[in-house]
Design a protein around this nucleic acid. Structure first.
Lengths: 187, 187
DNA sequence: GCATTCATGTAAGATGTTACATGATTGA
DNA sequence: TCAATCATGTAACATCTTACATGAATGC
């Protein structure tokens, strides 16, 4: 009832950055679909309707000449309060890649300490599970299934890449309250 | 109705390698939970019951002295046929990391060509979405949200790592019908 | 001419989580 | 003594997918 990220929270996080339509939100998810998958319209639109009912977002219809009218959703004050309160509360123990990324996208609503804790927790998780993977790999005999081998190998490769990334970002964030701008080596 | 991997298929894939209990299956998922998440017992046990009803698996109760008795599930001939038929049919267009890994674990039931196609398709997906990520990153102005920056950076890092892995494995698989054993550099 | 993009939505059905229950054993 | 591991399960509830519907514009 605390750490698990549902779609609604990420939707709120996106709207916290700028007003968007359901279609815009879907586009964002699509760009991330290979990583975390993308919810269908059949779950996205009802989710927005519910957020409207709960007063966490407001909606404005924008007519367009060529195209169908858009429904632009914005975060209300209530929604903003809800989001900051939610994002600042502790994260559950098990943190899958998907929930990690979804909450990472909400880092803007997080304190410097909060972000550092969050990344450190994810690192612990990956380090622990990486160890388990290596143990499993050592236990493998010759005749082991090719699928199992490939999966282990893939998981190890991604784990290493993620640990390298976490180290890089944590090093950039660690030095006191200094700028996070060092991360901006995105391009 | 074709490419999407549901839990049941991966369960069948695990049982294809060796008979397991529900608890064993959960243990496997747990070891992969940071990557693809893990289903709860509340969905795992009912799934096994349903597979039993459908005749795709058989069950044997193994009493134990210390611990509660285990229910060992094995793939039936019917189940094996179902699995090979399912795994050999074409993969849908959108392939998230989770569904990719789940199907990768089933590579043992796949032909050499099938595996190559599968990896190549995933590569296309990642290449395409990586390009989208770079485009998005270029469009970012200075004041962009830290969450968005971090997420993009993270996604790029993982995409690169995955592409490197795919290249390595595809190079090992490509040379005609030669051995896949080259992948066994797992340890 | 046909598929795709834009843009929204509903309803049925599948699937999932959460929270409970049981109960012995082992390690801190 | 308390928490965790082993090992199974059910019931209520939440959520998500699939498949449908609408309809105009743009690119091949």
């Amino acid at each position: 009832m605390s750490g698990i990220v549902k779609t609604r929270h990420l939707v709120l996080g996106l709207l916290a950055q700028q007003p968007m339509s359901g279609y815009d939100i879907k586009r964002f998810f699509k760009s991330m679909s290979w990583l975390i998958g993308s919810p269908s319209f059949g779950s996205l639109y009802p989710a927005l309707h519910r957020l409207l009912d709960e007063g966490l977002v407001s909606m404005e219809v924008i007519p367009q000449d060529d195209r169908p009218p858009r429904k632009l959703y914005s975060l209300t004050d209530h929604g903003r309060a809800y989001l900051t309160q939610w994002v600042s509360q502790p994260v559950g123990a098990d943190l899958s890649l998907k929930s990690f990324v979804m909450r990472l996208a909400l880092a803007g609503s997080l304190s410097s300490d909060g972000l550092r804790d969050y990344l450190a927790r994810r690192r612990e998780q990956v380090v622990g599970d990486r160890r388990m993977l290596v143990d499993t790999a050592h236990g493998l005999v010759d005749g082991t299934d090719i699928g199992e081998q490939l999966t282990l190998d893939y998981a190890l490769a991604l784990a290493d890449a993620e640990l390298a990334w976490l180290k890089r970002v944590l090093d950039a964030v660690e030095p006191g309250e200094s700028e996070l701008a060092a991360v901006a080596a995105v391009t």
